[in-house]
């Protein structure tokens, strides 16, 4: 579209200025009240642990946590770790796959620490061919 090129440049410039304005206003605002939509993690909260869980990542607080945070959560979410259950061999194969295809670096001595952490804190459990329904939220269904 060729119409109104000047407006367009002005608007692009305005757009580029937005982050500055936003940061300014955000700082100003947070001095007064905390907006319920805003999300802040202060430095003091980065290592907070509640009930054995590292709050910021949701990972189990145990030996190897720091190595996992440093090497794994740079690229993907800790949520992916928490959901998965694998044995040593499978974790090592997954690490190899990440190195071959996803740009993961050589983990050196940390690999054993990380795999030990994962298999200890997220052990495989048996589900069988079909598990029973779990965590049913019972409620009264009104019939019409």
């Amino acid at each position: 579209m060729k119409k109104k090129p000047i407006i367009r440049y002005v608007t692009i410039a305005a757009f580029l200025m937005l982050p500055l304005g936003a940061v300014y206003l955000y700082k100003k605002q947070s001095e007064k009240t905390q907006n319920e939509d805003s999300y802040e993690v202060g430095d003091e909260n980065l290592d907070e642990i509640v009930d054995g869980i590292h709050v910021r990542t949701g990972l189990v607080a145990a030996d190897g946590l720091q190595e996992v945070i440093t090497n794994c959560t740079t690229c993907h979410s800790s949520k992916l770790i928490v959901q998965n259950r694998m044995g040593k061999e499978q974790w090592n194969a997954t690490i190899r796959w990440m190195q071959e295809t996803q740009g993961l670096w050589d983990l050196g001595d940390n690999q054993k620490i990380i795999v030990d952490y994962l298999t200890t804190n997220y052990p495989v459990f048996k589900k069988g061919r079909r598990a029973a329904l779990r965590d049913i939220e019972w409620y009264t269904l009104d019939s019409d």
């Binding site: 757009f15 936003a22 206003l25 955000y26 939509d37």
Partner: peptide
């Protein structure tokens, strides 16, 4: 826009 309050100030009359 997600920053509720400020969006109204900053973006109220976006021309782009």
């Amino acid at each position: 826009a997600s920053f509720g309050g400020f969006s109204a100030i900053v973006l109220s009359d976006i021309v782009f």
